[in-house]
């Protein structure tokens, strides 16, 4: 999108969230909405990340703890199932990995430059409970 200079921005500016008139946002999924360029959904903060969460579908129990506690709306959940991570919006805070209740965790933080496939093939085994 085209950015305006500091002297071209009008005072009391309005930033529209949608490109067309939207009345029924509550019933639209994010991919169905017609976002405007000025909506932060179209932006990305992926360069903030040092660690990234990696999602392992085989271990996940769809408890949705990560969805409710994600501060960046970066957990994609549809129809009560966890689908994955929106890496455009994830800042790598690590809350999702922290609140994940499964054993081993289905979300683990790795370095940003590691490959997802490689990491998934070396997923840690189930840990025994310490008594």
């Amino acid at each position: 999108m085209e950015y305006k200079g500091w002297d071209q921005v009008e005072a009391g500016a309005v930033l529209p969230s949608f490109s067309q008139k939207s009345c029924d946002v509550v019933n639209q999924k994010q991919e169905e909405r017609n976002y405007a360029d000025t909506n932060s959904y179209t932006a990305s903060v992926s360069d903030w990340r040092v660690f990234k969460p990696v999602f392992n579908k085989d271990v996940c129990i769809d408890c949705q703890n990560c969805w409710v506690f994600c501060p960046d709306t970066a957990i994609v959940s549809r129809d009560k199932a966890m689908l994955g991570i929106d890496y455009d919006h994830c800042k790598g805070c690590g809350i999702c990995a922290e609140v994940c209740p499964t054993n081993p965790k289905s979300l683990i933080m790795f370095f940003e430059n590691e490959e997802n496939e490689e990491v998934l093939s070396q997923w840690p085994e189930k840990k025994k409970k310490e008594k």
Partner: peptide, 19 residues
């Protein structure tokens, strides 16, 4: 929580709050 997770978010990501 499962039912709650079917809500469609009206607060978008990529805001600039701290991680």
């Amino acid at each position: 929580l499962k039912q709650f997770s079917t809500s469609n978010d009206r607060f978008e990501g990529a805001h600039l709050l701290c991680p």
